[in-house]
Amino acid sequence: MVVRLCGVTKKYGRVEALRGVDLEIPCGQVVGLLGPNGAGKSTLLRILAGMCFPSTGTVEVLGGPPRRHRARIAFLPEPGCLLPWMTPPQVERLARGLFPDFQVQRFRELLEFLEVPARPAGTLSRGERQRLELALITSRNADLYLLDEPLGGVDLVSRRRILQGLIRTWRSEATTIISTHEVHEAEGLFERVVFLNQGRVVLDEMAENLRAQGRSVAETFMEVFS
């Protein structure tokens, strides 16, 4: 198991972001983490990335506490990870210094494929910035990718390009967890979908099983959260 959560609860003051989450994810799975705003998706990803700790319960990532294997985890946080002055070449230089698993060639190819303008991040549109961040994250040879809303708030063309970029860099041995609202476009990508609502896992199913029952992931999403 790449990820093992056992009875994980996370409290921010009196607010419970996660309530008793149990989750196991085997190696190589692409998991869609779905749910409305405030469901706990970002909190769950942050815990897996070792950015915060559960209030109760245990977390194991790649066989240990998340922080032990941070070098093998590629995390794309939702507010983004770029400073406004950074141009793609500066991002490349920074990433080479930060991540031993960074693939320069792949990064350059992705910039071209994702059509990222060679301008500072602060001057890019939201879609362009998100594509630059995705190029950065997926140019790492990580064992676990945690992507928080990589499709959020960007136009349709950007969303498709981002998804194609994800498929292009897909490695069968890597595990990926993607939180998203854009269920329709992304649903073909997921092997498994985990629905979170108010801090709890309300549905956890293989995507093809849902479809075999005659429901798309998007339809199930609507049913669960309507």
């Binding site: 692409v30 498929i167 897909w170 069968s172 990508l189 997921f190």
Partner: peptide, 17 residues
């Protein structure tokens, strides 16, 4: 597999299947 997965926007494992 990858070409088809990319053009359809689906998981490569699904194409392999």
């Amino acid at each position: 597999v990858r070409e088809l997965a990319e053009s359809m926007g689906v998981n490569p494992n699904t194409v392999i299947h």
